[in-house]
Design a protein around this nucleic acid. Structure first.
Lengths: 343, 343
DNA sequence: TGCGTCATCCAAAGCGCTTTGGAAGTGATT
DNA sequence: AATCACTTCCAAAGCGCTTTGGATGACGCA
């Protein structure tokens, strides 16, 4: 059942039927009702392909997800982000277009989406330092929104970020106040902008306390459980082992805990852990008292907000760029305690 | 730059240009080359909306993701599945359309996608027993593929499933052979078909060994870390605590481990854990020797295969239904050992 | 020379919707 | 009775592609 049949059966023009169903004013209320009822009865839905072509809007928002054996951007944070964003899209009549592409083709994937006109806007995930995608998307003149930030980007662009530097300096200060002097860093991949900022926050806090940051107790990799385990195990086995660790996500923190307990040490007593908690829905940080002391910011909320703001940009492309910076909250859990007295 | 401009500048008809670019035979090789070069030079990409309307194919495959506060289908398994599926879509020129909808609207979301013609096919995630979506999609006459199975579905439908029953009976047998007699079950939500089958596998293995399954040591909920923790903690504190646990995913298994270690017990010695391992990319089951003894089947591979098969169905809608049943492999890790002697 | 075949190209008709630019009818006003 | 404003509807022209059904010319062959 398409618009033509529908209008023929109603004895009206396509124009009138289309207008009636789309809520335009120039149609009599009684005929509108008749049209609406008839359409409902026949379960009519306008063909999306035709509608898109006619209006020029695809009602789709693109997300490009690179994959490779090295670099899993399809990560733990991602699924919660799209859950939040998708929620908002739905309520505005949009759907999400996911393009899962090989790492090497990531840049190309963005320009394909734009040139083919398959999406009305794009979200940029996981920006690196001086991320080339930003300039590209500006060139392509397609609305886009960055989740995170890209240092050294020359012009301004729409984005929302967590104050990662502050989150990590606060976490580090928290440990320092507990008397810890040797604090290991278990960071994400440092070509990611957020990981850079986190390290700077950590280093700044140490330096402010008169402690020289020691690269020997900093690790950086994809944020998996085994990475957290391996890094912690190695650092604990070395000379001058840290008495506390600061981890970039709850996942490597779980690995850190495993390494600590394997040495028959107690988390929160012998060794402290603090981490960044993205408030992942299926991996919550405990139910009552948090498992891990953490700086927390919901990535799902971030997804929601990015979606809202991007839709705003699509509806009003000439508005000045929007930027938001969220502060993470510090929640105290069971994984931290005073630095143990020296033996 | 669109096809009309392109053909005008080339002094050719739209027909010829379109055919040249789409590889049809009825165009001279030298003119094809000229057209191709010109198009490449101008970075021309056919408009997807127009192409879709003309061909009737959207080159999109729909996934519906329900969300609610109760039930998080946006779960750990999901992100790896779509990574695998998306990979295959890309290589076939498809993209993924994600519709994130409120729980109550899930059914409607499928029929909207079909009626609006926005997708060429659909994947059904997380089938329950006698899942209504199967009949609906059959009615709507849209190609679809089910990841999992739905017991009691009257007619046959395209699907791929892991042999969950067998995976859990084998896991249970493995524990029985180690001398365990009291084995706790930490299952997923039992309205999910897979969770049902898993429990049956567990119960069957117990009964074959002459052990009466005891509902008092079975738990079922969303597969989160805190759930695994809470369930294990509770069971360990009760009379006749289990000496082993079988968990439905690596995530609650992590929670189980936490509860066990909290009681100063050792995993794999005092208490054994075996779990189902979906081989999640960012939460691998260790690198060398697995952390958890597990029955394993890659959900990412399943995503890949479902995508392939669905594309097959789209290209050949009248082919007989395809069904695949994968066997999980049993990998032995550090989390299991002989049942402790009675004190 | 005339005819059939083949390779190469094109005009135009869709695909199913939205939207522009009226047209027709209805009252109210002069 | 003529004019105007307003409401209500419609025919037709897009949107940018694909695809049908020829048209044209070159060539080989009888």
């Amino acid at each position: 059942m398409n618009l033509r049949e529908l209008s023929q059966q109603l004895g009206l023009s396509q124009t009138t039927v289309s207008r009636a169903l789309n809520g335009y004013p120039e149609v009599n209320e009684t005929t509108r009702k008749r049209i609406q009822d008839f359409a409902d009865h026949h379960n009519y839905r306008p063909n999306q392909k035709a509608k898109s072509l006619a209006t020029g809007k695809s009602m789709l928002i693109g997300h490009v997800i690179p994959f490779s054996t090295q670099h899993e951007m399809v990560n733990i944070v991602f699924s919660d982000f799209i859950a939040g964003a998708g929620e908002v899209y739905s309520t505005h009549g949009y759907d999400m277009l996911l393009s899962v592409v090989n790492d090497d083709n990531e840049i190309r994937a963005y320009s394909e989406l734009a040139r083919k006109g398959s999406v009305d806007g794009v979200i940029v995930h996981g920006p690196t330092q001086n991320d080339p995608r930003i300039a590209l998307l500006q060139d392509l003149k397609i609305p886009f929104f960055v989740h995170g930030r890209s240092t050294d980007a020359t012009s301004s662009y729409n984005h929302l970020d967590v104050n990662n530097k502050r989150a990590f300096s606060r976490a580090t200060e928290f440990l320092l106040n507990l008397g810890h002097r040797r604090i290991g860093l278990i960071n994400g991949l440092e070509r990611m902008d957020f990981a850079q900022r986190r390290r700077h926050g950590y280093e700044d806090a140490l330096q402010s306390a008169g402690i020289m940051p020691d690269p020997a107790i900093m690790r950086s990799a994809e944020m998996t459980e085994p990475f957290g385990y391996a890094a912690t195990k190695e650092l604990l086995a070395a000379d001058h082992p840290p008495t506390a660790f600061i981890a970039s996500s709850i996942v490597p923190a779980l690995g850190a805990r495993r390494a600590i307990e394997e040495r028959a040490l107690t988390v929160g007593k012998d060794v402290s852990i603090i981490c960044f908690d993205d408030a992942i829905s299926y991996m919550p940080n405990g139910e009552g008292e948090p498992i891990f002391t953490a700086t927390r910011s919901s990535v799902r909320d971030a997804g929601r907000r990015c979606a809202e703001l991007l839709i705003g940009v699509i509806q009003n492309p000439d508005a000045p760029p929007v930027a938001e910076l969220w502060e993470a909250e510090l929640v105290v859990g069971q994984s931290t305690g005073p630095a143990p007295k020296k033996a």
